[in-house]
Design a binder for these strands. Sequence first.
DNA 1: ATGAAAGCGCTAACAC
DNA 2: GTGTTAGCGCTTTCAT
Lengths: 337, 337
Amino acid sequence: MAKQRASVKDVAQRAGVSVGTVSNVLNRPETVTERTRQRVETAMADLNFMRNASARQLRAGVSTTVGAILTDLGNPFYTEIARGIEDRLAVDGHALMVCSTDEDPQREARFVRQFAEQGVRGILVTPMVSTPDRLRELATFGIPSVLIDSRSDTHASVGGDHVGGGRLALEHLLAQGHRHIVFLNADKHLQQSRHRLRGAVEAITAAGLDPGTVLQVVNLSQPTASEGEQALIKLLEGPEPRPTALFCINDIVALGVIRGLRTRGLRIPQDVAVVGYDDLYWASELMTPLTSVRQPMRQIGWAAADLLLRDPLGATHTVFPPELIVRKSSDYQRPAD
Amino acid sequence: MAKQRASVKDVAQRAGVSVGTVSNVLNRPETVTERTRQRVETAMADLNFMRNASARQLRAGVSTTVGAILTDLGNPFYTEIARGIEDRLAVDGHALMVCSTDEDPQREARFVRQFAEQGVRGILVTPMVSTPDRLRELATFGIPSVLIDSRSDTHASVGGDHVGGGRLALEHLLAQGHRHIVFLNADKHLQQSRHRLRGAVEAITAAGLDPGTVLQVVNLSQPTASEGEQALIKLLEGPEPRPTALFCINDIVALGVIRGLRTRGLRIPQDVAVVGYDDLYWASELMTPLTSVRQPMRQIGWAAADLLLRDPLGATHTVFPPELIVRKSSDYQRPAD
DNA sequence: ATGAAAGCGCTAACAC
DNA sequence: GTGTTAGCGCTTTCAT
């Protein structure tokens, strides 16, 4: 039933040449006479020959697939990155394997190993703290990797400037007169979280204010809409003073926060201002258009894949500057108390 | 520099057994003595042995990766499907290769071939009209495939009921009193487009009305927000009567339409009602909360992968029923003219 | 229960 | 310019 696929041997036979010649037209066509090349190519077409990538990789050691280990394929931030990666890989015909870690180190470790066994050409990863260690060993086996969206001294990386992004957001909120701000942050171990917090604190200090009194940090167990909404509820039920502004680690969390504020009849931005991060494509169309720190996700993905393919060694760090897009959710000048 | 990876040979040597035994430990541990199994496993751990998937696949013919050919990894509809696929594959340790066709048959053909060369275990694809032909040949080579989101007589498929979805949307709009409705549809060759249109027409006919006068169809070159907005502008500038309701092929198009209506000062739903499709997670939080036909994307992806892995032959069709979620964008009873 | 050896499809070195 | 051949790492008979 299952027909056998044609191999180089079959092609060679049909074209009346040796397998070596077939291999040559495949890999070094310039070394083959025009005439025989034609014959071989005809034979290939006739037999519908398809190279066996496993055999090729086993023998030649060349891999043409790249693995991407992302935090969550269900999150547009990461899929935009994936799209950028894909576009770059398509340029020279590489394939992309993907997986989501959901920030579980165990899962990540499994995927790293799986990709290594597949013999991928390299690995792109939106990392956790422990990730670089897991990748170092692979590097000794000749499997390079590039970190996305956060950096490490030992690895090449491509991402946004999170310190700058945090600073931008806070500068804006301070300028709008806010003095009780809550940062709905992700896991405190994540570099992005720490960097954005650092930027926020810098902005407050630079304004001559005390971070300890101006900024309260809440770490979410997951940066999702429902966690954002939960955290908001707790804040509203908590002790005074109520915050006048919320800085959210991403737009999805902000979405949940906006929903929660609306449900409770609080006005945005008059009662509470909201700032998100990533500037996802729907941010401008929300019930309250969302102020957000924009990152060029697709470019980041593209650049990361590009780095991996051209120059995976060395610890280059490509940083894309963030951009604050001010919209209604924070567009309100607060009167001084 | 680049250390060599340990092979079964190295493991065998270190454990003082033959490579056959190592292979047995890997593939049929029950046939090996407890004691030697221990020894081999220790050796593997010591050498940090990683199986070479290429060699394994070449020799044993088993592949542990699945290819998914999706329309667009940048679109949440497809990434939710991807996430569902991924979750199912993770259950038995399969890896996922993905790519976006952007509805380009050429690209699709390239990816099909690429996956075939990789020797994937099977292919999942959100197809175009010509897709089944492209896959049929692979089936004869023993590479099964499952269509997602649209069906064919020759292939297994998993997806939503688009006829039913179109019917739901139109029944609703007709009940609200609309008699001039525009369907912002995708490519007319896509099965989803045709099915949803058929459902829409059915609903109109069932209501005793004339589809020709009630429904106008506009086919978008791409189902994107900006194309949706463009189409809207043309409609508004076009001849009377202006439509009172817009049925959009997906929520992204609806997003553009809503933006366009707002920009031009038209009220939703009083002046124009809008209905989307897919019910993406932000639909309820838009400036005008969006009525939409919900599809269980993640489940669809999961079911498709499940089908591929368990029972890829035969032409099973799994259909998930759509659900209409009514929100403000269409929540207005139109007075009879 | 374990070992020896053939061979999956391909590439690359070498011979002609 | 083309043919011959060894061998990549693994699995799998077939002996023992």
